[in-house]
Design a protein around this nucleic acid. Structure first.
Lengths: 227, 227
DNA sequence: CCAAAACGTGACCGTTCAGTCACCTTAATT
DNA sequence: AATTAAGGTGACTGAACGGTCACGTTTTGG
């Protein structure tokens, strides 16, 4: 057949990711693997926040995670894949909150039911910000740049967030809750205001008092800037 | 002395930028030079908007401007310098508007004088957006990413805008125009809402009706989302 | 205990890119 | 018209980086 050296017992293609003996879920193999992946994610996230996704090299991430570059590719396809893994939980948390709100608005029979639904959403999002501070910051820092290469998952999420928020606002608009302002406009204005405040808090350390940001924002949304 | 070939008649250092015969301002030399610089700026801006500042190479900019890479460096130090040249007019226009507004608030003797000052600022900024559409879009797309390398001028401008806007808002706050909301919070909320709307308009082609965006925004700032 | 899968490594390869340089052409100035 | 600065070019260099590979080590399932 082939020469004695380099004979490949199993599959001909080079396997980067384990497929034959991944071990039982929750077993030692699984644990180790998850730990390394987490280290890579954490290291990547820290670097991305500091210098931007695009500027960070695979080698830097691997070293910061305490391993070698070659090993990086055993856990993840490339930098974009790592960003994907990073962003996925954020997207999931956002969808959870939105799903819950949509369920509540669908079930609501009167205006006050709608308002509770929106207040619940606000609280859910507040919790989301608290639970995923660094991820939210990464999203805010990177979302607006054209999504080529590794930034694509972030840009995707931005479109997703925009679309779902506008859709939700249209419901409010149909129930006459928004006066003459087009739903797209009010949706984007609220998103924009919220995101800018959260960014100032997370990135610049401005506005240390989180509760005050939240209540001020709600007040401004309800009554305008002079509230 | 030296060999006949390659003798350097004048200065020993390689000159990239003309210093000895730049020609009179407005003269032909000056015109040509300005034209090329403009081509490079235009080409760079277009590429930056499409794929992000970081991803664009010097060679691409030069080719898009219809010239060779080597020539790029005769007009500009490097990519960062080009971004600097692009951003400078935007910064200048912003400062003009803010200076005018500060002058008006200083001169104002009553609340209505302050309000006119702020409305004038809003109109000035509206004009700024119209006069520098692509530059504003570039700013919005790139401002939040950590400012390493070529993106530094944009990140600088973001800090500048934030600082001046907050300072201006503090004046309003001292005149009791903002109720209980801290001036930093209202300033950032308004910036955020405005920027998000402008970005949707410029980048995504959403919200085609500019006048409606503007009036809606003013209404929301004044009366809240339900205006 | 042992075979082999998974893990880990860093040298290596091919590509890309910023910045330079020697040479050529154009045109402004005297 | 002659001189020479300025404009223009693309090949070249060195550095950086993504991704691979051959090899060594560890872990585990049987």
């Amino acid at each position: 057949m082939s020469s004695k050296k380099h004979l490949r017992a199993t599959t001909p293609t080079v396997r980067r990711v384990p497929t034959q003996r991944p071990g039982p879920a929750g077993g030692k193999r699984d644990q180790n693997r998850l730990r390394r992946l987490t280290q890579l994610c954490d290291a990547g996230l820290a670097e991305f926040l500091e210098r931007g996704i695009e500027a960070v090299t695979v080698d830097e991430i691997a070293r910061a995670a305490g391993t070698a570059k070659g090993n990086f590719y055993r856990y993840v396809e490339d930098k974009r894949d790592l960003v994907d893994a990073l962003i996925a939980p954020l997207r999931a948390a956002f969808d959870d909150a939105m799903d819950r709100c949509e369920g509540a608005t669908d079930a609501a029979t009167d205006v006050s039911g709608l308002n509770t639904a929106y207040m619940t959403l606000a609280l859910d999002l507040l919790k989301l910000f608290a639970d995923h501070r660094d991820l939210v910051r990464l999203y805010l820092q990177e979302a607006r740049v054209p999504g080529g290469g590794a930034r694509a998952p972030v840009a995707d999420l931005e479109r997703h967030v925009t679309a779902r928020t506008i859709a939700l606002t249209k419901v409010a608009h149909e129930h006459q809750l928004l006066g003459k302002i087009p739903p797209e406009v009010s949706a984007l204005a609220v998103i924009g205001a919220t995101e800018r405040l959260v960014l100032a808090h997370l990135r610049d350390g401005l506005l240390a008092n989180e509760a005050q940001i939240a209540t001020s924002l709600v007040r401004m949304v309800m009554e305008g800037i002079a509230g």
